[in-house]
Design a binder for these strands. Structure first.
Length: 119
DNA sequence: GTTGTGACTTTTT
DNA sequence: GAAAAAGCCACAA
């Protein structure tokens, strides 16, 4: 039986290497629910209150939207996320945007015939 | 069991 | 480039 959607997303987020990011739609797709990008974000928000409201060790800050922008600004974590990303080597511009084409990462498990661009 | 909401995505204007 | 609308599904009360 497939694990909970939440577990799936968290597992993927936990595998994101340093200096790389994943989009919500991407996580939703890998989790088996294409189009459920919103739920990915909701799961993350739930996770904050479920674990320790800090990150529990999950690089949730590596999760951004398809526009390569940080979505946590409206939740109040944008400032923190930007700091964490910059600390890992992710370059953010003045509008909190990053080079998604170069920073987006795909799990090796799905790298069978993937769009994995390069690095 | 039903209702409401949301850290999104994509296309179109 | 920016804004608006519709679609989508999971989690919480």
């Amino acid at each position: 039986m497939a694990p909970a959607f939440r577990e799936r997303v968290l597992a993927l987020v936990a595998r994101i290497p340093e200096g790389h990011v994943m989009t919500y739609g991407q996580l939703a797709l890998l989790a088996g629910q294409p189009g459920a990008a919103r739920q990915v974000g909701f799961v993350m928000n739930s996770l904050m209150g479920s674990v320790s409201a800090g990150g529990n060790g999950l690089p949730w800050h590596r999760v951004i939207n398809a526009q390569g922008r940080v979505s946590t600004h409206k939740v109040g974590f944008g400032d923190m996320q930007e700091g964490l990303l910059r600390a890992e080597g992710v370059v953010l511009d003045g509008v909190g945007r990053c080079d998604l084409a170069a920073r987006q990462w795909w799990p090796e498990e799905e790298r069978g015939a993937p769009p994995t661009p390069l690095l």
